[in-house]
Design a protein around this nucleic acid. Structure first.
Length: 468
RNA sequence: GCCGGUGUAGCUCAGCGGUAGAGCAGCGGCCUUUUAAGCCGAUGGUCCGGGGUUCGAAUCCCCGCGCCGGCACCA
């Protein structure tokens, strides 16, 4: 029953391991037992050994990363969630049969082990086995320990291997989790409630992007995967929830590159009775909290630049920025185009770029002193957009007009113009309190705070083409 | 979609017209304090896939696929 299926045998090493598996089963050893209890993690053993010198008996469990040593003594580092601890097996202690069994273990096997713990002569905290148990036989060889796994394609396609052997990779995803937790804690403490809104939508609104489309068979209609979280959340502000946020996945059917993934995570939050400036303050607090959670202090190094995240961030008018470059005070789509081409790529330190032309922002409130612009601001760092905030448009009459303008842009050839959302207008017609809204690109934030150049390196399972 | 790079043993890589290589891992033997790496020995390959040129192709040419980078797209 353990004869190797042919797709299995790439190396011969797998054959060897399968033979060991058979031998174990014949000897009555279950190579995949259902459970095992440990009482210490690797890190706990290490700190107890440091503190107490000698620890009576501990039970640890994890993955065997190597085996070395000689003759009657074998050393084997074991890795668990907390780190590594060395196992020491001595023939004189465990007996001939058990010692041979230990020597038969392979790199990559999951093992449970018990024994007293103390340092070796070389000072390495170790568990001196009195017994061990195989918890899962590993059939595939792990990448070499010294050079590790470098091949990026394998790292993405087989993230589990990457996580086993690359501590830096584990670190990135640990930090990602901590960053998101910190953001949640901050918003929760501010009285926001976390909500979940539909991923499948009839009208993919809240942004300008090509959506993925799908079809619901029972409902017999087409649906889109959301491209933004905005419109459902604002309906909740109409509903009186006053402070809501969602951290969720967006989907955009566009090109993939170092900073764009077809599915990516954003935070959006909406707050009644505040405005753009309130949301910019919140943005600064979110970035500060995230940086602290990532342990980067407030001055991470990113792509060769030291980024200064100490608030307040600079606030600059788009019109002024473009005028500095071109000598011309532009408006409308011409302004937005010049800004994106000439100004944005050159902004390195965190900068809130404010006063977007109304044409590019169909969901933001107009400035009272100049209705050609809206109360909107994007946070730019290193030439990239990290956050987008505005004073929300709450006037249903104006909102209807904006949607109509978008329809006009669409018929003029702008594919990604914002679709008309009649129900959203209806919601505004009930009355929405004056509010501020904010969106933050979580993946990019994690990239910044973990020093990763590619969005793929902060997404556990990035989309790749089909493996042949 | 376009341009460039790249794909060789489980991993990391060399080889770039003339019998497919190294280190590590794995396998067999010896070894009771190791920290990538003890010693000896024997192994291990659809050189990404398919065509072609050539006496001979991992190597040159064509087509295709994956990955990486850039551009386009992403206001």
């Amino acid at each position: 029953m353990d004869s190797p299926p042919d797709h299995f045998d790439a190396s011969g090493e797998m054959r060897d391991r399968l033979e060991k598996l058979s031998a174990l089963r014949q000897a009555g050893v279950e190579p995949y037992p259902p459970r095992f209890s440990r009482d210490h993690t690797a890190a706990q053993v290490r700190s107890r050994v440091e503190a107490e010198g000698q620890v009576e008996r501990v039970t640890v469990a994890g993955r065997l990363l190597a085996k070395r040593g000689s003759g009657g003594m074998t050393f084997a580092p074991l890795q668990d969630r907390s780190g590594q601890i060395q196992l020491v097996a001595q023939r004189d202690v465990v007996g001939e049969a058990a010692y041979a069994g230990f020597a038969d273990l392979d790199r990559g096997d999951i093992v449970g082990a018990s024994g007293p713990a103390r340092k070796t002569r070389r000072g390495e905290p170790s568990v001196w086995l009195d017994s061990f148990r195989l918890l899962a036989k590993s059939l595939r060889p792990l990448p070499e320990k010294w050079h590790g796994l470098k091949d990026v394609e394998t790292r993405y396609r087989q993230r589990y291997v990457d996580l086993i052997v690359n501590a830096e990779s584990r670190e990135v995803f640990l930090k990602r989790s901590r960053i998101i937790s910190a953001v949640r804690r901050l918003l929760d403490a501010d009285g926001y409630i976390e909500v979940e809104t539909p991923t499948l939508q009839e009208i993919p609104g809240g942004g300008h992007a090509r959506p993925f489309s799908t079809h619901h068979n029972a409902l017999q209609h087409d649906l889109y995967l959301r491209i933004a979280l905005e419109l459902p959340l604002k309906r909740l502000i109409v509903g009186g929830l006053e402070r809501v946020y969602e951290i969720g996945r967006n989907f955009r059917n566009e090109g993939i590159d170092r900073t764009h993934s077809p599915e990516f995570t954003t935070l959006e939050c909406y707050h009644a009775f505040t405005d753009l400036s309130g949301m910019l303050d919140l943005t600064e607090r979110i970035f500060t909290a995230a940086a602290e959670a990532a342990g980067t202090e407030l001055e991470p190094e990113y792509e060769g630049e030291r980024i200064d995240l100490r608030p307040p961030f600079q606030r600059r008018s788009m019109v002024d920025l473009v005028a500095e470059q071109t000598g011309r005070r532009l408006t409308g789509l011409e302004l937005a185009g010049a800004y994106e081409e000439l100004v944005e790529p050159g902004i390195v330190q965190p900068t809130f770029v404010t006063d977007y032309p109304v044409e590019t922002s169909p969901l933001a409130r107009r400035r009272e002193d100049d209705p050609r612009f809206v109360e909107r601001s994007e946070l730019i760092i290193g030439g990239r957009e990290y956050a987008n905030a505005f004073t929300e448009l709450t006037d249903p009459i104006d909102q209807r007009q904006r949607f109509e303008d978008q329809l006009a842009q669409k018929s003029a050839g702008f594919e990604e113009a914002h679709p008309f959302d009649e129900d959203f207008v209806r919601a505004l017609e009930y009355g929405m309190p004056p509010s501020g809204g904010l969106g933050v690109g979580i993946d990019r934030l994690v990239m910044l705070l973990t020093g990763q150049a590619a969005i793929r390196d902060v997404i556990l399972f990035p989309q790749l083409k089909k493996e042949q």
